[in-house]
Each structure stands twice: as structure tokens, then as C-alpha cells.
Amino acid sequence: MSSQPLAENLKPLDVFSAIADDLRQVESAIEAALSTRETMLADVSTHLLRAGGKRIRPALVILASRFPGVELSRVIDVAVAVELIHMATLVHDDVVDNATLRRGRPTVNAVWNNQVSVLTGDYLFAKSFTLLADTGNNRVVRLMSEVVREMSQGELAQIASYFDVNQTEEDYFKRIAQKTGYLIAEACRLGAIMAGASEEQVRSVYEYGMGVGLSFQIADDLLDYFGDEGTVGKPVCGDLKIGILTLPVIHALRHSPERDKLREIIATRAIGDAEVERVKQILEAAGSFEYARRKAREHIEAAVRALDGVPTLTTRPALKTLADFVVNRKF
């Protein structure tokens, strides 16, 4: 698989052009799901909708369901539910991280307060599971409840690992699988399940989704160093400043000739812009950024190989394009 970007300004909706009409229906269904007469909840819902998003997870539900003869009506509620769960986790994450920006817009907790954020996230979770229950398929409810459990465990593991210079690469990959990988993988699996795919086909799209999810998070962690606030939509190097040590740092802590200096900086628990620049120099010199890029490519290549197990899936070209977008994205 090529490591070169498909296009410098490629956007998610370009990747999803094959299902653009379906995504418009999903967007309308999300708006309908969030429609309410409760004034405050309506205001918060409008705020979340205006924040937008790439809608990668509901798109994956649709793409993974495109076996011959399957109609959108069989998967649209699941696609909406997956996106609402994603939205709920972001609202809660912003409270945990004391974040004030998300996708370039003020977070719910910044506009209102933490109480409103927590209750909004709870509402979104409840709404999503109502939609899943309405499918009449208990398996999809159980699988998504397991994903929410894993995501919660991943967030708790991340909090416990703040500024921990002894965490391992294995710890990191377990954490990002819980925080990001499982939901993306499950979006793919649920699409295939709702399409009536065989268990072998379901397993193949799940493995694809996990590879995409892991690569997506590694790329996101790299964007924390190389993106800019205008395009990333949140303060850059924010993770490092609050003590979240991602793959490049973990690599450098083991392999950099300046690992003792790096440990010293992290141990201060007071990482400002000057410290960030010094850390970036250490990581670059140690080849840690390139190492993270290589690991992201490895997971994407594994994801694309998994698609060989679903030869009848009509959207395989779009899924391969999405894989290229994830590993090369710049926002």
C-alpha cells in the first residue's frame, strides 16, 4: 500500500462519495434523534450538531453493510446509534480533560458547565441504546454495551497513566484499542451483522475496523504535535501538557540517547511551550515520530489485507480509500 497521500486536500466526504446520499439520510436521522422540546437539551443538541464531525463511524456501518441486496433501512438506526455513542464519549472526555475547544468550537462544558455535559452524555448514551434495542437484535445491544465498557476502562487507564514514564508500548496499544479501536471495529461489525453476513465476513470487517481504529489514533496522536489549532480544532500538544504520553514519547523513553532528560522534563509535571519544543527535538532525533508513522502504516496494511475476506462487499474500494485517508490525514 502506498504511503503517499491520495490528495493533499482530501476530505472525509470525498472518501465517502460512494455513500454520500446515505450519509445525508444518516445526518437527517441524527438530527431527528436529537430533536426535543426540552429547551436546554435542544440548545445543547444544536450546539453539538453545528460542531459537525467527520462521521467516520456511521459511514463505516454503512460501508460494511454493502453486501448485495442490503438496503440502507436495515442499518440506518445502528449508524445513528454508533455516532451518538461517539458524541457522548466526546462530551464526557471534554469534562475529564477540562477541554474548552472541540473541532474549533467551544465545548459543551465551556458554554454551559460540567453538570450539563455529564447529563448530556448520559442522554446520548440512553438514546443510542434505545435505537439499538429497536432493531430487535439483542446481539448488537450486547456488543455495543461491551464497547462502552471498554472505552470507560481505557479512559480510566489513561488517567492512571498521566506522566507515567514506565508505561510500555503494550500499555499504549491496549489503551488506544479501548479508547478508539473497539468503537470503529464495532461499527464495521454491526454493519455486517445487520446485513446478514457470515461470521467469517463479520470477522474480516471487524479486523479491518480495528486496524483502521488503531492507525487513526496513532495519526491523531501525531497531529497533536504537528497539526495547528485552526485545522485540528483543539490546542496542539495538549495531550503532552496534561501528561498523556503517546507512542512517540514512549518510544523515545526507551530508545533516545536523551531519555534521561526526557524523563526529567516529564517528571516536573509542568510542561509549557518551551518544554514541548525540547521534547519534540528529542523525539525527532530519536526517530520516534517516524516509528509511530511506521506503526500506523502497519496497522492500515493489516486492515486492508482483512478485506480479502469479504470479496462480495461492494464498497471494498471505498474502504481501501478510507484506510489511505486515515494514515495520511493532516486534520
Score class of each variant (00 low, 15 high):
106 P>D: 01
106 P>G: 11
107 T>H: 05
107 T>I: 13
107 T>V: 09
108 V>C: 05
109 N>Y: 14
110 A>E: 12
111 V>N: 06
111 V>L: 14
112 W>P: 06
113 N>C: 09
115 Q>Y: 13
116 V>K: 05
120 T>K: 05
121 G>L: 04
122 D>L: 09
123 Y>V: 10
124 L>P: 01
126 A>D: 02
128 S>F: 03
129 F>A: 01
131 L>R: 06
132 L>Y: 00
134 D>Q: 11
134 D>Y: 01
135 T>G: 04
136 G>R: 03
137 N>Q: 04
137 N>Y: 10
138 N>G: 07
138 N>H: 08
139 R>D: 11
141 V>H: 03
141 V>D: 01
141 V>Y: 00
142 R>N: 13
144 M>E: 04
145 S>I: 04
146 E>M: 08
152 S>W: 02
154 G>W: 01
154 G>A: 11
154 G>M: 08
155 E>L: 00
155 E>V: 00
157 A>M: 10
159 I>S: 02
159 I>A: 06
160 A>D: 06
160 A>F: 02
161 S>E: 08
163 F>V: 07
164 D>Y: 00
165 V>S: 05
167 Q>S: 06
167 Q>D: 01
167 Q>T: 10
168 T>L: 07
169 E>P: 04
172 Y>Q: 12
174 K>M: 06
178 Q>S: 12
179 K>E: 09
179 K>D: 04
182 Y>H: 15
183 L>R: 08
184 I>P: 02
186 E>W: 02
189 R>T: 03
191 G>R: 08
193 I>L: 08
194 M>A: 15
197 A>E: 10
199 E>Y: 07
199 E>K: 12
200 E>K: 10
201 Q>I: 00
201 Q>K: 01
204 S>R: 12
204 S>K: 14
204 S>C: 12
205 V>R: 03
206 Y>T: 03
209 G>Y: 06
209 G>Q: 02
209 G>A: 01
209 G>V: 02
209 G>T: 07
211 G>S: 00
213 G>S: 03
213 G>W: 08
215 S>F: 06
215 S>I: 04
218 I>C: 01
219 A>M: 15
219 A>R: 15
220 D>A: 09
221 D>G: 01
221 D>H: 03
221 D>M: 02
222 L>A: 12
223 L>H: 05
223 L>D: 12
224 D>P: 09
225 Y>P: 12
226 F>G: 04
226 F>S: 05
227 G>E: 15
231 T>Q: 14
232 V>M: 13
232 V>N: 08
233 G>T: 14
233 G>I: 15
234 K>T: 10
234 K>L: 06
235 P>G: 06
235 P>W: 07
236 V>S: 11
238 G>S: 15
238 G>Q: 15
239 D>H: 06
241 K>I: 09
